[in-house]
Amino acid sequence: MRALVLSLALLAFTAASAQPAAPPANWRTMTLEQLNALPKEQATQLPVIEFLERTDPNFGREKMEPIVATLLSRLMYAIDRPLYPFGAFLGMAVREFQDDLGAKADGALKFSEMEVLASRVRALDRTATPIFPPFKTDVHVSPTNDYVAFGGTWVIEGDKHAYPVNFTTYKCFKSEKLCYTADGNLIMSSGSGTMNVDSGFLKIIKWDNSELLMEDDARCRVTTTSVNLKNKEVLQITRNRDEGCDATWLPPLTTPRISRLVDGFKANQELNQKQAEINQKNFSKRFQEIAKKSKN
């Protein structure tokens, strides 16, 4: 089990690892403690299946081969070979995958390569079964201009939102000088997701016939939301507080961050389309060539 914990830690580290460096030639005779002490850039170059086979009798080749073979087959590697027996399929599929990555094609899948493979399959799954937030709720202003309600999905200009599947509703009361909010966002992880929901309120700092302004004065950042009551546009600007924030807890923004409230269904549809185009390029290059020729 300790070996399995180490292997999962290696996968988590891979995306941020430095240039690959070959592990020691004698790694097969090293203890688990010695393996744990390896520099991360070396540890991520250990062969996944052989490592687990040697260090964890409960999670060896017979369990890993079907997993790796299934992932490779999802991306159309070794498409002219039968998937089973797994060993024969893996020999060709792993080398083909390594060739596509520009890595040494030795047929032994490394932890760093495994993470690339798994992340591409996860992206494939997300676009195959996309999740969309609700449609945007247009700004509604009461006839007496004392109540405003609206809702939508926040997107950040020039940047990616950490949780693109998000939705927030607002109900604002002039008499209370408050806007009540209810928001939800989907936190995606490997093969699963968690829906986070929350509620709160924002203080109204301006409300006239043309604009409603509300503000959230948080610990490190101040967020001001502007609702144009004429053209129904909703913008948000987030800036650093002048003082009172520990930069080690939340790094300051380099520039003010501007967000727009949009139709989440349409925004995520566009994101999924872009990801689908990327996914097409992540299939086996040999498969892509075959598919291209079949169209001509």
Rank of each mutant, 00 (worst) to 15 (best):
residue 147 Y to R: 08
residue 284 S to A: 03
residue 66 P to R: 14
residue 253 L to M: 13
residue 230 K to A: 12
residue 281 K to S: 15
residue 3 A to M: 07
residue 71 L to P: 05
residue 289 E to A: 13
residue 51 F to N: 05
residue 76 M to G: 11
residue 259 S to L: 11
residue 56 D to S: 15
residue 157 E to I: 14
residue 128 A to H: 07
residue 108 A to E: 02
residue 18 A to S: 05
residue 126 R to C: 07
residue 57 P to F: 03
residue 295 K to M: 14
residue 152 G to L: 05
residue 76 M to D: 04
residue 124 L to V: 10
residue 69 A to Q: 13
residue 41 E to R: 14
residue 53 E to H: 12
residue 295 K to E: 02
residue 135 F to W: 01
residue 82 P to D: 04
residue 275 Q to E: 15
residue 263 D to M: 09
residue 259 S to Q: 12
residue 98 Q to K: 02
residue 264 G to C: 10
residue 128 A to R: 14
residue 167 F to V: 03
residue 293 K to W: 12
residue 279 N to Q: 04
residue 136 K to D: 02
residue 232 K to F: 08
residue 161 H to Y: 02
residue 273 Q to G: 10
residue 214 M to T: 01
residue 291 A to W: 13
residue 98 Q to N: 04
residue 49 I to E: 01
residue 177 K to H: 14
residue 239 R to P: 10
residue 212 L to K: 04
residue 44 T to L: 13
residue 190 S to E: 07
residue 202 L to P: 02
residue 128 A to I: 05
residue 13 F to L: 06
residue 23 P to E: 01
residue 58 N to E: 11
residue 157 E to F: 00
residue 4 L to N: 00
residue 103 A to E: 02
residue 148 V to Q: 03
residue 145 N to T: 01
residue 224 T to G: 05
residue 58 N to V: 13
residue 174 K to V: 04
residue 239 R to S: 13
residue 106 D to Q: 09
residue 125 D to H: 06
residue 292 K to L: 14
residue 277 E to R: 13
residue 28 R to A: 09
residue 66 P to W: 08
residue 43 A to H: 09
residue 60 G to L: 07
residue 62 E to K: 14
residue 154 W to H: 01
residue 197 V to L: 11
residue 127 T to P: 04
residue 115 E to Y: 08
residue 12 A to F: 01
residue 163 Y to D: 01
residue 18 A to R: 11
residue 144 T to K: 13
residue 273 Q to I: 13
residue 284 S to N: 02
residue 153 T to H: 03
residue 268 N to C: 14
residue 232 K to H: 11
residue 276 A to V: 09
residue 250 L to D: 12
residue 241 R to W: 02
residue 150 F to A: 12
residue 38 L to P: 10
residue 49 I to C: 03
residue 97 F to R: 10
residue 155 V to W: 00
residue 149 A to L: 05
residue 180 Y to F: 12
residue 198 D to K: 12
residue 284 S to H: 03
residue 130 P to R: 08
residue 240 N to E: 06
residue 92 M to L: 15
residue 265 F to A: 11
residue 284 S to Y: 02
residue 116 V to K: 11
residue 143 P to T: 09
residue 251 P to L: 10
residue 74 R to Y: 09
residue 93 A to T: 09
residue 227 V to F: 00
residue 58 N to H: 13
residue 89 F to C: 12
residue 282 N to R: 14
residue 79 I to F: 12
residue 185 N to M: 02
residue 42 Q to D: 03
residue 180 Y to T: 03
residue 36 N to F: 01
residue 276 A to C: 10
residue 129 T to V: 11
